[in-house]
Structures are given as structure tokens and as C-alpha cells.
Simulated assay, not measured.
Amino acid sequence: MATSPAPASAPRRRRRGFPRWAPAALLGSAVVIVLVLIGWVGWLVTTGLQALGAEPPGVGTTIVAPEESKAAKAAASGTLSTVEQAAAEYLAGRPTAYWLTPEIDPVGEVGARVLALAAEARKQSAALALVVYGLPERDCGNHSAGGLDDDDYDVWTAQIGQALDSIKDVQKIVVLEPDSLALAPECGNVAERTAQLHDAVDRLAGVDTWIYLDGGHSSWLSAGEMADLIRRVDASDARGFALNVSNYNPTSAEFAYAHEIAQILGGGHALIDTSRNGAGATSDWCNPPGRLVGDAGGTYGDDVVDTNLWIKPPGESDGECHGGPPAGAWWPAASVELTRDVR
């Protein structure tokens, strides 16, 4: 399994408390006290009770295991061999982020999907974790090419944001457009990309919604380059950045990278994807052989890394390489290999 970061402590959490009244105020006019209480109650009504305890993800966070996952659909298909069925069932039961793409959840339907996933999270007493993945010129024409045009992307993300804003009793985690920032220098569209992400954050932000920008991974851009790209997004409503999404780097390397980026930025927080990094580092990012699922989400965290999560669903292909199907498609052979030590 991946080398564990040492030692991993729970992230520091900011709590909203009741107002601290000075002794003189307690002895003052009863009218003042009544006005304070009325204002407090009004604040509760306006923002919702969840805001009282609203905290970012941390050690112990459990996210929903989506009933709509490709693993769950594969397990229900009746077409798998015995070992493929066991792998699909295992992965379907693991808490994993759900990827919103316009190909599966288009404009006009994506909001309903978010609400359905929130209902599942509520039933499971879990957080809702979404990956928003529909940016114009997505993946710069590589294996995951596609996405929406600018106008449709604005509408699509606005509908996601409206659905999220209507959910008041579930913690909401959003990983925004994996690879979008790290690829931008190669694609030659840094200014356009950072502006798109800035606007998307504005549309997605809301109470108890924790948004993480793309942070690449420790074997890609230097920490300085990555920090500069994150800074250029200029998104004050983003919680931080997500690392190692769909990649295989050891957790310890990503912790170190997160701390480097945060130090350069003068602050910031991270999520780390541990869904497929259980066999250690590899230089091959596209369906490398010999991989294993990594540590369960909510295992690690510190003052920079909020926690680790399964962000890329194990068993879904990275693209048509090493015999894999198109990017995002369910690949039974990969699901078997990834779970060979845990089934």
C-alpha cells in the first residue's frame, strides 16, 4: 500500500460560536439583549442550521457511495464473470466522488442529478462529493476531450450551483475541473482558463460548499508553477486545491507537495486522491498495469491537507491505452486488478 504520511493529524477546524458578550453588556438593557437574540435567530433562519457547524472536510469524513456509479451499474448488469462481479460490487460500496459531465448529466438534467445524489448522501449520513468536469476544450483534445461551449458551460455550472444552494443539510465537496490548471500552460490558454474557473467558482459557491481547484500532482508542475496558476484564478470562495486526481503518486509525496504550494500561496488547503495509489509511484499515467486501490477516504489530514478521498472512481478507464476502453468507461479487467488484494 502507499507510504502513509507521518504523522497525520486531524485538520484544524474553525467553529462558529455564540457571541461573547462583555460583563457590562449582560447587565445592560433588556431591550439590547432581546435585539441581539432576534438578530441571532434571524441569522439562523437566513443561513440554515447547518451553517452553525459547517466545517470543511477532515479526517473521518465519509462521502456518499453513489447508486448511479458505473461500478454499481456494472454490478447490476448481469454480464460479468464471477471475479468481475465481486470487484464491481466491492467498488460500488466504496465512498467515491461522482463525476458530473455534460455527456451524462446535460444542461436541464444536471440539477436533478445533484439533488438525487444529495438524497443518497442524506440516507447514508455522508457528505456529497462531486467532480465538475465539463469545461470548454476539456483535456485539450486528449483522451477526455469534450466539454461544453462557453455559454452552455455557464448555464450548466449555474444549474449545479443552484441545486447545491438548495441543499441545506448535507456537506458539499466540489472538485472543479481536474487537469484544467495543470494542463493550461501546455494548452496555451492560461488566461482564458483561469478566468473560466474564477467564474465557475462564483456560480458554484454557497453555504457549506467546499470547492477545490485543480492542483495537478507532485510529478507534474513545480510547486511554484502550480501555486502561480492557482493564484491567477483569484477565487476567494474556493477552499483550496485537489491533488493526484486520477493519478497514482504516493500519498506522502502529495502531502509534501500540498505543503509546498500552500507555503508559496501564504495559505490554502488541499484534498488528495488516494483511489488508485495503493501500489506506489509509476511514471505512466494512462491505465498503468499493476495498480491497486489506495487508502480509504478520511484517513489522513493535517493543517494543510483537509483529508484524502477517493476522487477518481477505480475501474473506470483513463483512455484507450494499455488495452483500455475510452476514458471514463467501465473496464472490468482494471476493476479486478485494482481490487485483487482487498476482495
Rank of each mutant, 00 (worst) to 15 (best):
L135R: 06
H322T: 00
A118H: 01
G315A: 06
A127C: 13
Q159K: 01
G319K: 07
R203V: 05
G215N: 04
L292H: 14
G323W: 00
L197V: 04
V83C: 02
S9P: 05
Q85H: 06
T47G: 08
F255P: 11
G278S: 14
G323N: 00
G78M: 13
E103M: 14
V201F: 05
E137Y: 13
A333I: 03
L229G: 11
W330Y: 08
G215D: 12
Y133N: 09
I104E: 09
A87Q: 03
D306W: 05
L117P: 00
P325L: 08
S219N: 14
D273Y: 13
A75F: 11
D149L: 07
A76M: 07
A76R: 12
R138F: 02
D284R: 07
D199R: 12
G134C: 05
G224E: 14
D151C: 00
A88R: 00
D179N: 09
D284I: 05
R15I: 07
Y300D: 03
N249A: 07
L100K: 05
N189K: 13
D306A: 08
E109K: 15
V305Q: 01
D105V: 02
G315V: 11
L181V: 02
D149C: 15
A279P: 12
P313Q: 06
A253K: 10
D295G: 07
L115P: 02
G297A: 10
A87P: 07
S166C: 11
R113T: 14
P19L: 11
A163D: 08
I230P: 05
A76K: 13
E186D: 12
L243Q: 04
V336T: 11
W220C: 03
R239S: 09
E89F: 04
V41G: 08
E137P: 02
L292Q: 15
V305P: 02
A116I: 01
L49Q: 09
V64I: 03
W310T: 11
G108A: 04
A163S: 15
W330N: 03
A158K: 03
L115F: 02
R14N: 09
L221Y: 04
G294V: 08
Q196K: 08
E177H: 08
P57N: 02
G48T: 12
W21G: 06
N308S: 08
G324E: 00
E109H: 15
L176E: 00
P250Q: 11
A205T: 11
D139A: 07
A256E: 12
L135E: 04
D302T: 02
A88Y: 00
D151R: 09
A242K: 01
V233A: 02
S335K: 12
G328P: 04
T282C: 03
P19I: 06
V59K: 11
A25I: 09
G319S: 08
R291S: 04
